[in-house]
Design a protein around this nucleic acid. Sequence first.
DNA 1: TGCACGCGCAACCCACTGGTTGCACTTTGT
DNA 2: ACAAAGTGCAACCAGTGGGTTGCGCGTGCA
Lengths: 116, 116
Amino acid sequence: MARTEAVFDALGDPTRRHIVLSLARRSASATALAAELPISRQAVAKHLVSLRDAELVVAERVGRETLYTLDPRPLAEAARWIERVGEEWDRRLASLRGVLDKPGDEPGLNRPSPNI
Amino acid sequence: MARTEAVFDALGDPTRRHIVLSLARRSASATALAAELPISRQAVAKHLVSLRDAELVVAERVGRETLYTLDPRPLAEAARWIERVGEEWDRRLASLRGVLDKPGDEPGLNRPSPNI
DNA sequence: TGCACGCGCAACCCACTGGTTGCACTTTGT
DNA sequence: ACAAAGTGCAACCAGTGGGTTGCGCGTGCA
C-alpha cells in the first residue's frame, strides 16, 4: 500500500504521465525523452528519479547511455486502489438500497451518482 | 481526456486520496472530514475545491452545512488511462515476441517486466 | 431574539517541486 | 589520442500548493 502512494504522486504530474506513456511503447534514454518534450534533459532526468522511486521505471546502463524501461506492475496497484474505492461505493449503495428497499440495476463504477 | 488530467492531479495528494476514500463510504461535510484529519477545516475545504474541479465530488447545501458526495465516474476514466498504458505495453510485448519468434504466456498488466 | 454552529473568502507563510545552467566524468568513434 | 555524446551531480530560481489564522455572513435551535 505504501508503494501505491508513490505511484499516485508520480502520476500526479503531466510530464511524468507523458513519460510513462512513452516508455510503454519503447524503452528510451533521458536524452531521447527530452527530445519529445519542451524541457531540458536534466528536468527529464529528475522526473525519471521520481518514477524510479515509485518503481514504475527500471534504469539500465548500456554503454554510455542509460535506458529506462517501464514496469507496469505498480500501475496495477494504483488501478486496484481505484477499484477499492469503487467497492466501498458499491457497498454503500447496497446498504442504502437495503434501507430504502428499492431493488434495481447492477452496481458498477460507471454509473451516475445518487443524490443522497 | 482533459478531465483525466485533473483527476490524476487531484489523486496526487495523500489527503485528497483519504477524502475520496472517506466519501466513498458516506457523504460528509468539510467539518466532519476535518475531524478525522490532522488539518483545519479550511484546508479540507480547499481540497474539496480541487476535487470538485476534477468533478470527483458534488457539493449540496443542506441547511447550514454543505454535504459532499463522491462521484466515482471520473475515477473510471483514470482507470481507463492506466489500462491504456497497459495496452501499449502489451502491444509492444507482442511485437517484440514477433521479432524473437518466441510464443509464450498470456499478456497482462500483472507481469514481470522483460529486460529489453 | 440571541447565540452557536457551519460555512466561504481573503491574506499570509513556508516548503517543495519543476525548471534552469554549469561542470566534471565516462564511453564511443575516428 | 582526441572530440563528441551521454550522463550525474550541484547550485540556484520561481511558482505554486498545502497549510494557517482571521473575519463576516447565513442558518438553526433554545
